[in-house]
Design a protein around this nucleic acid. Structure first.
Length: 111
RNA sequence: AGAGCGAAUCGGACAGCGGCGGGGCAUCCGGAUAACGGAUUGCCGUGAGGAAAGUCCGGGCUUCACAGGGCGGGAUACCUGCUAACGGCAGGCCGGGGCGACCCGAGGGAAAGUGCAACAGAGAGAUACCGCCGCCGUUUCCAUACGGCGGUAAGGGUGGAAAGGCGGGGUAAGAGCCCACCGGGAUGCAGGUGACUGCAUUGCCAUGUAAACCCUAUCCGAAGCAACACCAACUGGGAUAAUACGGCGGCCCGCCGUGUCCCGAAAGGUGGCUUGAGCUGUGCGGCAACGCCCAGCCUAGAAAGAUCGUUGUCCAAGACAGAACCCGGCUUACAGAUUCCCUCUCUUG
RNA sequence: CGAGGUGUAGCGCAGUUGGUAGCGCGCUUGGUUUGGGACCAAGAUGCCGCGGGUUCGAAUCCUGUCACCUCGA
């Protein structure tokens, strides 16, 4: 990806959960918080609740591909955490892209 | 043709565009135009399973422990073989099921000992309730009835199980008391590596439970790749010591610091990490599991963790499901497709 | 990767040398009260997580499997 790293540390996830803005949709939940590193970082979460390994991998891939295709539309300098829900497993990438688009509009169009 | 039995294989296919992990080559950057390290890019090639799953067994590998042995604990349990090993597999034995192909079975020891067998029933390893029979007494012509003493285990009823089963002889009534057949035990002979089988003789015998304790035989040191090895920051400890240097000090001892060496050591780095009891094919040995020879092949190796998105075509419309040190099994889940061997029934020749 | 535990009535839990499955709360009915609560009496409620086995007989023993929970590295 062009200007995106992975989010790895547990405390960085927690920072997104506590300090970040939230957007919820049926297929994905988006947490967003500013970092000061000049790049974007993305964390993907698929808990054991949504299924076993096949379902969890599927949910991660769909979220990752949707973000990759829309990367240029997001501003730089943010951490994003995408949380998979049960419907993510049975969704197509286009559905998740629509949800991300709605999240971008909700989070960044406001002054 | 229909109905079945067993074994094996496969587990959507193809194409375009975009994207991801590892490797190779080139390119670029750093470095000494090196070794090596890194990544803005391009090309080539490669990239999940038959169960990758559950983690139920076994082994490799690594570290720790260990003279040798015992106790304790655990596992296994018909026989012979295969294997690195196994609780696995193959072939056989025995028992059970099916007309059959074939399938199923934790299948050592209850005569070493202990425990348990509720309720019911007279009685559960011992008995005599009802009953049957004999003798004596009373009643009486007899039969019968009642009482007492004894014999008996055929019949009744209870139970999962009642002292081998069934038939005949025998008897007062009965009883392996005797006999034939069947079952089981012991002994001998024959066959087989063996489990075991066949035959003969003897002879009628101690129910079940060991997935109750237990006995017998065999096997087992422990932990796990977050193992472990190497490099190593910060900080800490120790040694060198009858001193290599400096400081405190008049000097020695001593103390402190530096140097050298060692130890410990991170949320760090590298290795372990995939060439292996490997895969494919021919041949040979073996009923088979499997083994041997030769030839060819290289087939994921990540570290938040790679196989996807999208478009199109085809069909039978795609199930269960995602490697994390590696193998051999077991168990469990699974839409469907294909091939082969064999069995039964019917029809035709 | 490794270790352990739990599953029984609507809810919380007992019940293991194998022999008719129980307690508390809740529920239903009746009594008591002018009525309600409390109290008293009676009653209902279970494939003992699921499949298979051992046994005459299994919640209990063995085995397979499912779900949930906890712990260690």
């Amino acid at each position: 990806m062009l200007h995106t790293k992975s989010l790895t540390l547990n405390k960085e996830f927690k920072r997104a959960y506590y300090r970040g803005q939230v957007f919820t949709s049926p297929v994905v939940v988006v947490y967003a918080v500013k970092n000061r590193q000049g790049v974007n970082r993305i964390g993907l979460t698929a808990s054991k609740k949504i299924g076993k390994a096949v379902q969890r991998n599927r949910a991660r891939r769909v979220m990752k591909e949707a973000y990759r295709l829309m990367e240029q539309q997001f501003p730089i300098g943010w951490d994003f955490v995408l949380v998979a829900r049960t419907k993510t497993v049975y969704s197509r990438t286009g559905d998740v892209m629509k949800a991300l688009d709605a999240a971008r509009a909700h989070l960044f169009s406001k002054p």
